[in-house]
């Protein structure tokens, strides 16, 4: 069950800490997906996993493979760049779709106009 590549002790500790931290942050984000009580609040939750969660695991795996093959292995950079660019796009699209639907239905919890908050503040 617990087979793993043989790394020097310092690298093993570092990789272990990074991977567990990344997984824990992802779990916190997904718990938010369950616990937050409003769709727009829930959209914020997965970004935890998509930023530091993915980041922790990717840096861990970069260190692991760099030490194993004794050359820098930058494959993970591709995934990191990809996730950083795609996650905001999906979340923005989803939020806009949800806002559009709520406005069509006349849901009072969402602002009917983009300027509602400015008008409230400026009087």
């Amino acid at each position: 069950m617990s087979t793993a590549p043989h790394l020097p002790l310092w690298a093993a500790l570092l990789v272990a800490a990074l991977v567990v931290a990344g997984a824990a942050i992802t779990l916190v984000g997904s718990i938010g997906l369950v616990r937050l009580n409003n769709f727009y609040a829930r959209v914020h939750a997965p970004t935890l996993g998509a930023t530091l969660g993915v980041g922790g695991v990717l840096v861990g795996s970069m260190i692991c493979f760099s030490v194993l093959q004794s050359r820098p292995l930058l494959h993970e950079v591709l995934i990191a760049v990809f996730v950083t660019i795609t996650t905001p796009v999906t979340l923005m699209l989803l939020a806009r779709a949800a806002l559009h639907r709520d406005r069509v239905e006349g849901n009072p919890e969402v602002p009917q106009s983009d300027l509602a908050s400015l008008e409230r503040r400026d009087g």
Partner: peptide
């Protein structure tokens, strides 16, 4: 020891990510 540490941490991480996936499935 190094292999054991890394192996068990990976198992722990996989359990945590598995729980996160369960949360997503629940939603």
């Amino acid at each position: 020891l190094e292999v054991l540490i890394l192996g068990w941490s990976l198992t722990l991480a996989q359990v945590l990510v598995g729980l996160a996936m369960a949360c997503a499935v629940y939603r």
